[in-house]
């Protein structure tokens, strides 16, 4: 069976300057892959390229196949059909991920309605409201009725991220792309969101592309990792192998740094 997302020799450049070089990896249906590396290593750009959302200034070459459709060079009309059914995004910054002028219920309702229309039926009125509340409950939001009526600035960062996840789920994607979804949150909220994502992805059999610079976070949620440094994939493999016996200097440095951090925490505890 063809993988859900296949990236082959992806090169991204801006004004001739390379951002991502010869990147290749694939995600099968239901598989969970982590993309890790420091900021500026091209992780997010890769995710953008996967859904054809790259800024115009960036030139992409190579092959990106999402749900059997070549993404690079595809017209917007084709991509529009692809997005929302095949892949959905969860972003790093939960505040800018929600439109400040729309109540939570409206924001979640929109992708729900669009998804329903794609499946050939109209969703509106009280049926739509029920679906919205059901989704908010699935992402474990307390008092979903109250949250549904709130504006984004009236709820907390963790709650906003849960709403963003609900919006992504509303599309019923086969692949969920989470771009540093826990980076802007405090540690306890971070753990809760991770648990939620993990549960939802397993439950629905979705594939997950998890982007992070945080090693322990990645190790917790994915099966395979791609380690990126300056736009190049330096190491690929199952989580346990890569982190257990890192082959590349950069991966080794990452693992050592993470261990040193854990050690420091245990030392003071």
């Amino acid at each position: 069976m063809q993988p859900l997302l296949q990236i082959q020799d992806l090169n991204l450049t801006v004004d001739g300057k390379p951002l991502v070089t010869d990147l290749s990896f694939s995600i099968a249906a239901g598989e969970r892959l982590g993309l890790i590396g420091e900021s500026g290593s091209g992780k997010s750009l890769t995710a953008m390229a996967a859904t054809g959302l790259l800024p115009r200034a960036i030139t992409a070459t190579g092959a990106v196949t999402l749900g059997g459709q070549q993404v690079i060079g595809a017209p917007e009309r084709v991509l529009n059909g692809l997005r929302g059914t095949v892949a959905a995004f969860v972003f790093q910054e939960p505040l800018t991920a929600l439109d400040p002028l729309l109540r939570v219920a409206q924001q979640v309702a929109e992708p729900l309605r669009r998804r329903a229309r794609r499946d050939g039926h109209e969703l509106a009125g009280s049926a739509l409201q029920r679906e919205v509340l059901a989704l908010l409950e699935q992402v474990a939001l307390p008092q979903p009725e109250r949250i549904a009526r709130s504006y984004p600035n009236e709820i907390s960062g963790g709650q906003r991220q849960r709403v963003a996840i609900a919006m992504a789920l509303a599309c019923q994607p086969q692949l969920l792309i989470a771009d540093e979804p826990t980076t802007a949150l405090d540690v306890t909220t971070q753990a809760e969101i991770l648990k939620l994502l993990d549960g939802l992805v397993r439950e629905r059999g979705m594939a997950l592309l998890f982007i992070s610079h945080d090693l322990p976070v990645v190790a917790e949620i994915v099966e395979r990792v791609v380690v990126m440094q300056r736009g190049v994939a330096v190491e690929t493999g199952p989580v346990r192998e890569v982190f257990g016996a890192p082959q590349h200097d950069y991966t080794r440095a990452l693992v050592v740094a993470a261990k040193a951090f854990d050690g420091a925490l245990e030392g003071t505890a």
Binding site: L53, P111, A164, C171
Partner: peptide, 24 residues
């Protein structure tokens, strides 16, 4: 990001203009 989110969920550009850009 909510524009990117809207685009990933398949909102057309006219939809983005009337739903997100103009109100904001």
């Amino acid at each position: 990001d909510y524009i990117t989110a809207a685009r990933t969920s398949g909102t057309s550009w006219l939809g983005i203009v009337f739903q997100h850009v103009l109100p904001n």
